[in-house]
Computed example of a mutant assay.
Amino acid sequence: MLGPTIYTEASVLAAWDETAPFRGIRLALPPALARAHRAPGQVVKVRTAAGEGFFALASAPSPDAVVDLLVKRGGKVADAAIAAAAPGATLAVTEPFGKGFPVEEAAGRDVLLFAAGSGIAPIRAVVQHVLAHRDGFRRVTLFYGQRHGAEFAYRAEHLAWERGGVRLVLCPSGEDDAWPGVRGRVQEVARALAFGGTPPEETVAFVSGMTAMVDDVRRVLAGAGIPPQRVFANF
């Protein structure tokens, strides 16, 4: 996935520590770039002094042309982007691209969302879309995994997601910290909880995470009767 090669400076509106591993960055896209933001799950490329990197947009398309990124510390490009993204500065970004998630496929159906690690970024965009069009979907359940309980991003929004009709199941996979709820990989927890009670014939799934995780979620869902053509990744 090479993506666009033309970069435009986007203003940094805000930057914050979402969790210890993750930094949130809010950008105002110029109009020409904002017009390309058409679906939850699209990505942009960011150019820094350390090189270029791909980052999923962590927000759904909106008329105000404001987008969020969730950047995981530890990579050269990611750390350079974090260092450069001070409020009032600019970041060089491409227009949003990629097919994103075909949310129209889930209209009138139950929806399962799976996110692991920084994969919560594009899934958050789906959650925002669902909340803005809640009557268009049936039951919606999000299985969200991180290694440790302290690493779950967007904690300040979780209650609003639940109140808006998105059931949230947090799934830490590590064994070395206290956690009062379920524990394990998202696909294992989902299977143990009978996928939130969704009937396979009425369910569409959106998945984001590392390739091995996405493949395993597809396998588990297929075993539950949800065919591959109703399981979508954003890449």
Rank of each mutant, 00 (worst) to 15 (best):
Y154Q: 03
V189S: 01
S11Q: 11
P199G: 04
Q42C: 05
A50H: 03
A190G: 15
D79G: 10
A84P: 13
L131K: 12
A89Y: 06
V46M: 03
G74H: 11
Y144S: 04
G181R: 03
C171Y: 08
R191T: 11
A224D: 03
D176P: 06
R219K: 11
Q146N: 15
G136M: 10
A160W: 00
P40G: 02
L221H: 09
P172A: 00
A224V: 00
D17Y: 02
V43I: 13
N234G: 01
P172K: 02
A150Q: 15
G165T: 01
L57V: 09
A150V: 14
A14L: 07
P40R: 02
E201Q: 14
V214H: 05
R147I: 04
R155Q: 15
L70E: 09
W161A: 03
L57A: 01
A106T: 12
Q187K: 02
F137P: 00
A92W: 09
G88E: 07
W16C: 00
E188L: 09
Y144G: 04
F55H: 03
L69G: 04
L27T: 04
M210Y: 13
I82G: 12
T5E: 14
G51K: 08
V12T: 00
P87S: 12
P21R: 00
A84F: 12
M1I: 12
G24L: 00
M1A: 13
L27K: 03
A80T: 09
P180S: 07
V44A: 01
V71L: 07
E95N: 11
A58Q: 09
M210L: 13
C171N: 08
P63H: 06
V207T: 10
A32Q: 15
R139Y: 11
F97D: 14
P40S: 03
L221A: 05
G3D: 05
G3E: 06
V166L: 02
V111S: 07
E105P: 09
E162H: 08
D110W: 11
R163D: 12
L193V: 02
F235C: 12
T90H: 13
V214W: 04
L221W: 07
D177R: 15
L69V: 04
D17V: 08
R26Y: 08
Q146F: 07
K99N: 14
P102V: 10
V46E: 05
A116I: 07
A178N: 09
M210P: 14
V44T: 04
V127Y: 02
F235W: 15
A49H: 14
D79M: 09
A205Y: 07
F195C: 03
M210V: 13
Q229R: 15
A58E: 08
A32K: 12
E9K: 13
N234A: 11
P87C: 12
A78G: 15
V126H: 01
A205P: 10
P200Y: 00
A36P: 00
Q146C: 15
G108S: 10
E202Y: 05
L170M: 14
K72A: 14
V71W: 07
E151P: 05
A83G: 14
N234Y: 01
G41E: 00
L69F: 08
V231T: 15
P102E: 10
P102F: 10
V186C: 09
E52Y: 08
V111D: 05
L112C: 09
L29I: 02
L112T: 08
A132E: 14
F97T: 14
D68V: 11
R109L: 15
A39R: 13
L13S: 06
D135F: 08
S11C: 10
G223S: 00
V93C: 06
V12K: 05
G174Q: 07
